[in-house]
Simulated assay, not measured.
Amino acid sequence: MPYEETPVGTVRALYRYPVKSTAGQALRTATVTDRGLLHDRRWAVYTGDGGIASGKRTQRFRPVPGLMQWSSSIADASGVPLLVSPGGLRYRADDPAASRALSAAFGQDLMVRPETTIPHHDETPLHLVSTSSLAALSALTGGAVDERRFRPNIVLDTGMLPAFCEDDWIGAELALGDGVVLRLGEGMPRCVMIDQGQAGVPAGTKALKLLGGHHSTEFGLQAYIVRTGTLAVGNVAALRRTPG
């Protein structure tokens, strides 16, 4: 089916979070798979009742405040994350010592596990935000807003496009990188996590309240994978729509 293609920006940053709800890993290149960026949220910390540690409470998730002060990365070809404590201690996620260290740090039984049948992603496999929206929120807060606060996978440099430009992209496709195509979904609902501190990002008090008053407590877009491939910082992003 023919479509119209309009450049809307370039990839400014890529992030993955090898252990869910920990501070993530910035990338120059990333492989996009059917479930999102390779190694993204493949592992998570589980609570004693089988919930997935997060910043909120739902049927799947359990709040474990402070977990974002830990960080995770993929350090070798095994694909097993390396967990780093706020004090700099390092643990492989598959080492029982990692679960023991987390349990001791948070005063409850915690275990690091890979994903099985219960998905670790909150809403969708990918999440993207634009620099236009970051600039708009920065203007509302009166100071620069760190993109890491929103835990995106893809940050698009949208130049002079208007604030919250991605609102008009819902339902379209986005082509970028080495053949990657995404289907853009609804706005990403935000929760208390965006004001919580994480490794390298101090706690804040304004973002969630301001988004509630100015943008329906949403920031960025949910995204689904149409075609897998490779992404790199600097890739051009083009919006695809069917004419009419």
Rank of each mutant, 00 (worst) to 15 (best):
R35S: 15
A13T: 09
V80K: 00
R113S: 05
R190Q: 13
R42C: 01
A77M: 09
E123W: 12
D94Q: 13
T217V: 13
L110V: 08
Y91E: 00
A26E: 14
G179C: 02
C191T: 03
T31D: 12
L239V: 02
P2W: 10
P125M: 06
G24V: 13
E166I: 04
S133D: 02
V129Y: 08
D76M: 11
Y46D: 00
L231A: 01
K206I: 02
D157W: 06
P96K: 10
R12P: 03
L137I: 15
T228D: 02
P119H: 12
A104L: 13
A136N: 02
L140Y: 05
I225Q: 04
L239K: 01
V180G: 06
Q196D: 07
S130M: 09
V80S: 01
I118A: 12
T47H: 09
R42H: 15
V180S: 04
S130G: 10
Q69I: 03
T31H: 13
R227E: 11
R16D: 04
G187P: 06
D34L: 15
E5I: 15
P243W: 10
L126H: 03
R148W: 11
T228W: 00
A53F: 06
K20N: 08
P189K: 11
T58D: 04
S216W: 07
V19W: 09
R60S: 03
K206M: 14
N235L: 01
C191Q: 04
R183C: 10
Q25E: 15
L156I: 14
G48K: 07
S71L: 02
A207L: 14
V19I: 15
A23K: 11
A23C: 14
K209Q: 12
S130Y: 01
A199W: 12
S73H: 09
G159W: 08
A172K: 13
N153G: 01
R12S: 14
D76R: 14
T116C: 01
A77D: 14
A172P: 00
L126G: 01
A77Q: 13
A175M: 07
A30L: 06
D76P: 08
E5C: 14
D40T: 11
M1K: 10
V32G: 07
G87R: 07
Q198D: 03
Y3L: 08
V112W: 03
R151L: 12
L37V: 05
A105C: 08
G36Y: 00
E173H: 14
T242S: 14
L176G: 04
A23F: 08
M160Q: 15
S21C: 09
L140H: 12
P96F: 05
K56A: 12
L156P: 02
Y91L: 04
L239P: 01
L156N: 03
L211V: 05
M68G: 13
S72D: 00
L38M: 12
P7N: 09
D122E: 14
S73K: 15
S103P: 04
G197L: 04
A77N: 11
G220H: 09
P243A: 10
S133C: 07
L67E: 04
V8R: 02
L102P: 06
Y91S: 00
P7D: 08
L231H: 05
T205I: 10
L184N: 05
E123F: 15
T230C: 11
G229K: 09
S130H: 03
G179W: 05
G55N: 04
Y46M: 05
D122G: 02
G88I: 05
G66R: 00
G212D: 13
